[in-house]
Amino acid sequence: MERTDEPLSPEESLRLIESMINKVKGRFNEDGHLFLFWGWLIFFCSVAEFILFHFYHYEKHYLVWSLSWVALAYQVYYIVKKHRRQKVKTYTGHIIGYVWLTYVILSFLIGFLIGRLIGDTYFLHIFPIILSLYGMPLFLTGIILRFGPLIFGAVCCWVLSVVATFLPYDYQMLMLSVAMITGWLIPGYLLRAKYQRQ
């Protein structure tokens, strides 16, 4: 119905304000696509690395992670496309974007720092540190979106990071696979379901 320019009573004004705010309040822009994309990619990479290292003793087992660069390029393309498609930008979406940017910067920085400080044996320590780092964006996104499965996933990552320190190197890789299931894939599918129900 077309809105007229007739004068409003105070009650009508407040009702109008409330109804318009409600139209955007619960708006959910996260469809879980990138959670599922990265969740499956890292799950397969970590399982593949475990198989190559544990069963075949392949020296260059870490090469499977080269796939991440292709994935990163796809992510940049996807985010630019999504950004252009969005008709409305919310404050929560804006803050979540910066949380993930912080995570990406920290990932590269910590990768560099570990390499510099520890030297050739850096890879022996990398998985528990990566797992603890994974928890940060999941936890903050869960808090901002008020989405329990992400918070649960974050706590799982942190628990797995501690567990990984008690395990031999090859089994640490499998902790990463478990973290992908609990922290990224399950919340990712639940996010998608919530988005589609909206």
């Binding site: 809105r3 409003l8 109008l16 318009m20 955007v24 008709k87 930008k89």
Partner: peptide, 28 residues
Amino acid sequence: HSQLRLAVMSLLISVKEAEFTFIKEKTN
């Protein structure tokens, strides 16, 4: 204190920014 302008402002106060088509859709 006008129906449509108040509706537009109420929408915009809740979001960072919105396209004209989005505002048109929400305000009818």
